[in-house]
Amino acid sequence: MNPVLDRSMASLRSLAERVQEHAAPAAAAAQEHHGEAHAAGGHAEEWGTEVMMHHVVDSNIWEFGPFGEIHLPELPAFNVGGLEIDLSITKHVLFLMFAAIFTIATMFIAARSTERLERGEKAPGGLLNGIEAFYLYLRDDIVMANIGRGGERFVPLVITFFFFILYANLLGLIPFGATATGNIMVTAALAIIALVVIETAGFIALGPLGYAKTVFFLPPGLPGPLKPITLLIMAPVELIAKFSKIMALAIRLFANMTAGHFVILAFMGLILTYGSMVGQGVFGTTVGAATILGSMGLALFVMMLEIFIALLQAYIFAMLVSVFIGLIRHAH
C-alpha cells in the first residue's frame, strides 16, 4: 500500500473507532437485554438520520467543518394575523441571497459583454455565448413556444426562475453549501409566485368571465338538468387542479433536490458504518476497504447525477411555468 492510502486508512479507522465508541455501549446493552435491542437500533438509526437531517435542514449556523462556523444574525420573530414570522437570516436565506447575487451577476456580465460586442470592442466570448444560448433557448423554445403571441412579457420571469433555481440548486453541491431549493418553504414560495403569475396572466388574457370559466366550465351542448350537477362536480375539481399543479411544482423541486443529498449521505454513511471493519482481520479490512472505495465511487456518480438534476429541475420548473401560462391563456 502506498503511504497516502495508509494515511487515509488510518484517519478513517480513527473515525470509525469514534463511531464504535458511540455505538458500542448501546450494542452491549442490546446484547444483554433483548427488549432494549429495538431502542439501541433506534439510537444507531437516529444517529444516521441526525447527520442526514442536519445536513439537509435549515439552521442559523453556517458550518465550515473543521474550520469553525458562523452564527448568522437572528431577528426577533413577529406575528402577522396569528402567523409567526421569523425573518432571521438562516443558511437557506443566505444561499438564496447568493443565488440572487449570482443570477444578477451572471446576467449582468452577459449584458455588458453584449453591449461591448455591439460597440464592436470584442468578439463574442465563452460566457456570453453560453448565457445567450440559454437566454435564446428559454425565450424561443420554452416561453414563446409554449405561450405564443404576447409571450415576450413572461420572458424575464421564466429566465429568472431558471437561473435563480439553477444557482440555488448548484450552490448546494459545493462544500459547506446549503441547498435552499431542498427546503419546502422555498420551493412553495417560488411555486406560489408562479401561481400568482399564471392566474393573473389568465385573468388578463381571458377577462373576468373567461377566467371564471376556467373554474366553472360547462361543455357546450350539455342538457339543462345536467348543468348544476356538472358544475357541482367539476368546479371543485378544476379548482383543485389549479393548486395541485402548483403543489406538484413545489414538491417536485424540493423532493429532487433533497433526495439526491440523502442518497449521497447514505453512501457516505456506509463508509462510517463499514469503515470500522478496517483493521479487524483480513476479511474485515477487505470488506471495509471495498465499502469505502465503492461508496466513494457511487457517491461521486450520484454527485455527477446531482449536477445534471440541478440543471434539469431548473429547466423543468421554467418549462412548466411557461406551459401553465400558455394553457390558461389559451383556455377554451
Partner: peptide, 16 residues
Amino acid sequence: IFSLNLGLFVWTVVLF
C-alpha cells in the same frame, strides 16, 4: 425537513 418557516417563505418571495 417539513418545518414551516414563514420567514423563509417571505425571504424567498422578496429575494426572487
